[in-house]
Amino acid sequence: MAVGYALAKKGVIDKKGSDQMTTLLSYVVLPCAILYSFQMKFLSSMLRNFLIMCVITFGIHVFSILVSTMIFNKKFVPEDQKRCVLRFSSTYSNCGFMGFPLLESLGGEQWTVLWLSL
């Protein structure tokens, strides 16, 4: 990210180049990273951990939806469109690209597979 920021500040990458790199990351690099992360031996404990993560993730999302509905109500955010955006963005994050290397360094391939599966 720092390299991309520096190149954009120096004018090496313009808006069109940035859009092209985003498309490349979204349609080529990310699917390849997902497929690469599944290249390991299957263990029965992985299935158990996956199911536990599904339950935890479901609970976190339900909790986030309830809290965001209470916080971003008509009284505090009267505009419908703004309220919907605030509720959605507080429930569903976009931490995928930056989180993968960190996840793999902390927990190895198994954590990355669990995260990509959810």
Rank of each mutant, 00 (worst) to 15 (best):
V3L: 07
V3A: 10
A6F: 07
A6E: 10
L7S: 03
A8N: 05
K9I: 00
K9T: 04
G11L: 06
G11N: 02
V12N: 02
D14H: 01
K15V: 01
K15N: 04
S18C: 07
D19R: 12
D19W: 01
M21V: 11
T22V: 09
T22F: 12
L24E: 02
S26V: 08
Y27V: 14
V28C: 10
V28D: 02
V29R: 09
L30E: 02
L30F: 04
P31R: 00
P31H: 00
C32A: 12
A33Y: 06
A33R: 01
I34N: 00
I34D: 01
L35T: 03
L35Q: 04
Y36E: 11
Y36P: 04
S37L: 04
S37G: 00
Q39Y: 07
K41D: 14
F42I: 14
L43Q: 13
L43T: 09
S44Y: 06
S44D: 09
S45A: 05
S45W: 04
M46T: 00
L47V: 05
R48V: 01
R48K: 14
N49D: 13
L51V: 12
I52T: 08
V55F: 05
V55R: 04
I56L: 13
I56V: 15
I56C: 11
I56M: 07
F58S: 02
G59L: 11
H61K: 08
V62E: 10
V62H: 01
F63W: 02
F63H: 04
S64V: 06
S64H: 08
I65N: 08
L66H: 05
S68M: 13
M70W: 10
M70E: 07
I71G: 01
I71A: 08
F72W: 07
N73S: 08
N73R: 09
K74A: 11
K75D: 03
F76V: 15
F76M: 10
V77C: 10
P78F: 07
D80N: 11
K82W: 05
K82N: 07
V85I: 14
L86K: 03
L86H: 05
L86P: 00
R87M: 10
R87H: 06
S89W: 13
S89C: 13
Y92M: 09
Y92I: 14
N94R: 11
N94A: 04
C95H: 14
C95Y: 07
C95F: 15
G96V: 12
F97L: 15
F100G: 13
F100N: 10
P101T: 08
P101C: 11
L102T: 15
L102V: 15
L102H: 13
L102Q: 11
L103F: 10
L103A: 15
S105C: 06
S105P: 00
L106E: 09
G107Q: 02
G108F: 05
G108K: 05
Q110K: 08
Q110Y: 08
W111F: 14
V113W: 03
V113F: 13
L114P: 00
W115K: 05
L116Y: 12
S117I: 01
S117A: 15
